[in-house]
């Protein structure tokens, strides 16, 4: 009797609520970073595609740095050094900035691949109809290239959502940080991490399902 009670001791329905709230924060910081990062990344990808030399010499190496330095190092460095240059951001702000840049660095390559996926004859056909450069981009390259690299983009988005756990090192109470707090208090790492994992799954599963559905519809 004693033991069954102690199994759940410390973990209360309130804690579940606490985790749920933290999951919303994970969702919020991810959604924000992924949206802004995607827009930026598309712009960068376009520059990489069009800018040729100038972009390859300047932009590409910078993006490479953000892609290759571990996110946790970027977060800690930025959070601690940004105030020196007068940027006083809280953990959430720092997390959004770094996650956004990180997303944009990943999306840049995806976006460039998307533009490249639309071959020259197709674009010439569009231009031959009198479409301007931007009309061709908007009505031909975006839908065709976008669909071609959509799975890759979904991969980036889901990855960033998981990686947003790293913002916990700055003290932002998202899902992972909340779990750590509860583990310290309840000494129930297995239970709590399982619940946290379930939350992450609950956040990504609908996205990947919806993505799969879209891909199927486009494939017809």
């Amino acid at each position: 009797m004693q033991e069954t009670i102690s199994f759940f001791s410390g973990f209360t329905p309130n804690d579940l609520w606490f985790l749920g709230e933290a999951a919303l924060r994970t969702l919020w910081i991810s959604a924000l970073s992924i949206s802004i990062g995607t827009v930026l990344g598309c712009a960068f990808g376009w520059m990489l595609y069009e800018g040729k030399l100038a972009a390859t010499l300047t932009l590409a190496p910078v993006l490479d740095v953000f892609r290759s330095v571990p996110l946790i190092i970027q977060l800690v460095l930025f959070y601690n050094f940004a105030p020196i240059v007068g940027l006083d951001l809280d953990p959430f702000g720092s997390g959004v900035v770094i996650l956004t840049i990180y997303t944009s660095a990943l999306v840049a390559n995806v976006a460039r691949g998307g533009i490249e996926a639309v071959e020259r004859p197709m674009r010439r056909a569009a231009r031959s109809l009198g479409m301007s450069y931007w009309q061709d981009m908007r009505y031909v390259v975006l839908p065709i290239g976008g669909r071609a690299v959509f799975p890759a983009w979904v991969g980036v988005a889901l990855g960033v959502m998981k990686d947003s756990a790293l913002v916990s090192v700055l003290g932002y109470v998202e899902l992972l940080k909340a779990s750590q707090i509860l583990i310290t208090r309840t000494q129930e790492p297995f239970l709590i991490l399982t619940i946290a994992g379930a939350f992450y799954f609950a956040l990504s599963f609908p996205i990947s399902r919806y993505a799969a559905k879209l891909e199927k519809r486009w494939a017809q």
Binding site: R124, R127, S128, R147
Partner: peptide
């Protein structure tokens, strides 16, 4: 872009917009 409206072109590859 205006002038091209006068000049329709058909290519070897048909280039239909697949979407």
């Amino acid at each position: 872009n205006k002038l091209r409206q006068k000049l329709g072109m058909v290519f070897q590859q048909w280039n239909s917009f697949p979407h």
